[in-house]
Design a protein around this nucleic acid. Structure first.
Lengths: 169, 169
DNA sequence: GAAAAAATGTTACTTTATAACAATGCATTT
DNA sequence: AAATGCATTGTTATAAAGTAACATTTTTTC
């Protein structure tokens, strides 16, 4: 996760983006990563899949499947649910997109590697979702579970609250 | 959370129940707690709400709303979705039931107080769900989020994996 | 027991997601 | 380039999860 300094010179984890950040870079980074990853694995990032990924990266908010559907469709050629869900399935399988269970919605994966335990910070005000790859949390969680004799295979950690930007204003 | 000793004399947190535990007690405890809590608050634990709560406590698995619906209905008098969802809404508002987002399903709340941050351990094999009131996790999570300038208001923590009983066999 | 409030019933619909099969596209061999 | 085979997308239909709006009944309160 990128670090930045605030006005007091403190180190802050920069998980959320400013309102007017150069979003093109987020998108660009995500798409080239997708390209690279798929090439490397011999997976096909088809036009449809790429379009879906781009639409998801259009913002940092979680996107509903049926919103994607609407945006992909024009009156002449409506796109049907299975098409979108299949693209999402592919993108999730390759770690390019995550499903946010508590929202029934999808966000682009900004994490480094494919198979990681991500946590999500979801702003209840602006709707922006930020991904934390907090190994610390992952471990705390796994340790606590271990006390109950439980082996963690997959975790859903979704934190709803207020992002720095909305807190400030 | 109750403690128990295993064969080595170690202290273990007993979050999961044995296969043949005296389940009547779980149910009994849950129902009397519900009675007490509602009386105390002047809330009405009506027949319908109580029936739904009982059905949920029928097992330690998460229950789907439409399963409840089926079980509440007989051919003559089908119960409709809003009835069940309203009962669930009431039970959740009073902290008697939790929704498990990653399963679209509901479990009885075994936690002590009403307004708590619960974490769920979900066994992928047997389907049993256990509630951890891990203040430790809650805090670790909130602390980590704070580093990103994020204020946590509500958390969804759902851990999928293997419970002790299924691990053993 | 009449009025008000709370809970439940009812109808209809929205949103989210998947199953099953058909058609198309793409990649490799020949 | 035609033939084969597999992956992807299209299409139809339906399942599963949840809610809005209004009618009826039950409970409480005055």
């Amino acid at each position: 996760m990128a670090k930045a300094e605030n006005s007091d010179g403190e180190k802050l984890v920069k998980a959320f983006h400013g309102a007017h950040h150069a979003h093109g870079r987020c998108v660009g980074r995500a798409l080239s990563r997708a390209d690279a990853l798929c090439r490397q694995r011999g997976a096909r990032l088809t036009t449809m899949r790429r379009r879906v990924l781009e639409l998801i990266w259009d913002s940092h908010k979680a996107v509903k499947a049926y919103d994607l559907l609407d945006r992909l469709s024009d009156g002449e050629k409506p796109v049907r649910p299975p098409t979108v869900y299949r693209a999402l399935e592919f993108l999730m399988a390759h770690g390019l997109v995550h499903r946010v269970d508590s929202l029934n919605a999808f966000v682009g994966c900004s994490g480094a590697d494919a198979d990681h335990n991500a946590q999500f910070l979801i702003c209840q005000q602006c709707g922006d979702v930020s991904e934390m790859d907090g190994a610390a949390i992952g471990k705390a969680v796994a340790r606590q579970a271990q006390l109950a004799g439980f082996t963690v295979r997959r975790q859903t950690v979704e934190l709803h609250g207020e992002c720095p930007r909305c807190t400030a204003s």
